[in-house]
Simulated scan of single mutants.
Amino acid sequence: MSRLRANLILMLAAMIWGSAFVAQQVGTGTLGTISFTGARFLLGGLVVLPFASMQFRRVHANEHRFVPNDWYLMILIGLTLGTAAMLQQHGILRTTVTNAGFLTALYVPMVPLIGLVLLRRRVHWVVWPASVGCFIGTYIMSGAADVELRIGDFWVIGSTLFWAAHVLMVGHAASRTRAPLVVATTQFLVCGVFGLTLGAIVEYPQLHDFTSALFGIGYVGVFSVGMAFTLQVVGQRYTQAADAAIILSSETVFAACAGYLFLGERLSLFQMSGAVLILVGIMAVELVPLTGIGRPRPLQ
């Protein structure tokens, strides 16, 4: 798969995520944060499981023989994903969708920074201004001066560390195993079991709590988890983690478009300039490296 096609797949994932923020806020019913997260990821895992099973048999026989370390890595990714999603979901219920969308974008500059400091991975120079530009663009789209920190925002901020780690690990695992559907499904099932087990201990959910959240679990589980997270894993096999983080930040733009189409929400000219800044950052990451200027050199 070409890098361009992989990045288009990542943008499609961002489009689906952008439409899911509202469902995550209004579709939980009386179900607790942890149980809701576990239920939606378990559903997403079951949706993708038949396709992952076929891919596992093919790859294991012909391309990459799975070893215990592969499964340990995918389990760790699932636990990281679960922690990020639970922290974000807990925060979303205690703040605005606008604030949550903006603060989640903090992971965009974190990805290349963590990659450089901890993994010693150099990236193309354009990634740094593009990361900052996407973060500023998200801030502008969120209303800039109207964004006031609430208690839920600190939970969302905490989730960004785990989102950044997740983006880095997913790309590595997809390339290592050559089986992105297996990586996606394993992380979903681990996250689902983790969330439902922890939720049963902490939240004591009843059957009526799950039935009250059926719409949210169904929509987010099938589309945001089963489709979008799987697309993320597939796309990240063929593109760098830092590039992926920038492209995935376009979910803010798509969230605004969904609000315009379905909720009648409008952006000011100032907020539209933020969307333009995000799109410019994405185009820069896609096009500037093609010029061959400023290719990164490995660290010694």
Rank of each mutant, 00 (worst) to 15 (best):
92 I>R: 01
30 T>E: 09
96 T>D: 08
107 Y>T: 04
36 F>E: 00
7 N>F: 08
238 Y>T: 13
4 L>Y: 13
84 A>E: 01
259 G>K: 13
162 F>K: 00
158 G>V: 10
133 G>C: 11
44 G>E: 01
194 F>C: 12
18 G>E: 12
165 A>N: 11
140 I>Y: 11
178 R>M: 09
152 G>D: 10
25 Q>M: 13
53 S>Y: 07
136 I>A: 10
47 V>N: 05
103 L>C: 04
209 D>I: 01
134 C>A: 10
21 F>G: 03
255 A>Y: 00
91 G>R: 04
186 T>C: 14
237 R>L: 01
128 W>T: 11
51 F>N: 13
267 L>I: 04
290 L>H: 12
177 T>G: 13
167 V>S: 03
71 W>L: 14
245 A>E: 09
89 Q>G: 02
296 P>M: 06
28 T>A: 11
209 D>R: 02
130 A>P: 05
202 V>I: 11
234 V>S: 08
289 P>Q: 11
229 F>A: 02
208 H>G: 15
164 A>I: 06
104 T>D: 04
130 A>L: 12
61 A>T: 08
128 W>V: 07
100 A>W: 03
33 T>Y: 08
210 F>H: 06
277 L>Q: 03
299 L>Y: 12
198 L>Y: 15
288 V>E: 08
195 G>A: 06
152 G>K: 02
46 L>Y: 08
49 L>F: 02
237 R>P: 11
256 A>L: 00
179 A>V: 04
18 G>F: 01
